[in-house]
Simulated scan of single mutants.
Amino acid sequence: MPILPGAEPIRHDGSQTGVLLCHGFTGSPQSLRPWARHLADRGYTVSLPLLPGHGTRWEDLQVTGWEDWYATVDRELRSLRARCSEVFVCGLSMGGALALRLAAKHGDDVSGVVVVNPASTFPRLEGYALPVLRQLMRSTRGLTDDIAKEGSHEIGYNRVPLHAAYSLRNLFRRLRTELPEVTQPLLLLHSRTDHVVPPSDSALILSLVSSTDVTETVLEDSYHVATLDHDAERIFADTHGFISRISARTTARDGA
């Protein structure tokens, strides 16, 4: 199945500092493309993969699960580690959950984490109904373009396949037990108004991680897809500043 125009993965060879970006559920690399380009323009080695089942048609997502999505970013992280001396992981929404799991599982191979409107829970009523509903219907209405900025558009599915949604719920359940294993420096940015992921998800993540170097930033002028919204430039600049600060600290420690 052809990839939707604009949903293609991005890879850029740069410095010994690598950055892996993870897009969200039913979305595509398009939602993070400006973020990836900003980091590539500052000389980093950047990888923004297309997750299985995404960027084509929603029926393709129906036959995948969280293990497939995580396996993809896990491979990308290992590839970056083979070429770079340090790697940072970043993500939007479900991509934030994947980035946090990478940090939990890979320890010192991840130097820092940046997440934007990260998801960690599933709506309670929908979650309870999913085991039955997914046997009765294939999909439900999707929610894309939760963006405050006029004229900005997200490439994503307008249907959510319920088998994949059930798998997503299982990913969040697993992640919550693993968050205490996250010890790396963490930059978490979340929108004041988000119609997809509640701010309480960010609060839950902050309460469970074991990181001691934590920065929380509230985005006042963006909705869920903040990387395409009014606060995008702040996200990009803060990410670069975060990576530069951690890299400099690591270099100084190694030199000492």
Rank of each mutant, 00 (worst) to 15 (best):
V197H: 11
P49T: 03
T212M: 03
V89W: 02
S211F: 07
T239M: 03
T227L: 01
Y166L: 14
L130Q: 10
P198D: 08
H224R: 03
A36Y: 04
C84D: 10
D74T: 01
V19S: 00
D146Q: 09
I235K: 11
S200G: 11
F88G: 03
D146P: 06
R101Y: 06
G91N: 01
A103E: 00
P123S: 12
P198T: 09
G127C: 07
I3M: 14
L186T: 10
T251M: 11
T45A: 12
L189I: 09
S191V: 09
L102E: 06
V89K: 00
P123R: 09
Y223T: 02
R124L: 15
D221P: 04
W35E: 08
L162H: 03
T212E: 11
Y70N: 05
W69R: 10
H190N: 13
S28M: 06
A36S: 05
I243C: 08
P185L: 03
Y44V: 01
S120L: 02
S247F: 12
G95T: 01
A82M: 05
G255R: 15
F236Q: 06
A165K: 08
P52L: 08
L186K: 07
G142F: 12
G142E: 08
E154D: 08
S120K: 00
H38G: 07
I246P: 06
L125I: 11
E154Q: 15
A82S: 12
F88V: 04
G127I: 05
V63D: 15
L133E: 00
L175W: 00
T239L: 05
S85T: 15
D108V: 01
G156P: 04
K105Q: 13
Q62L: 14
R173L: 13
D68K: 09
H23G: 03
R176D: 09
C90Y: 02
S79G: 14
H12C: 14
L92M: 08
T26Q: 10
H163R: 12
L4F: 14
A237H: 12
F236R: 07
R245E: 04
R192K: 13
R138C: 02
G96E: 10
V209A: 01
L136M: 13
V19I: 13
T250E: 14
L187D: 02
L102A: 11
V182M: 08
L206G: 13
T17W: 07
D145W: 10
G53W: 07
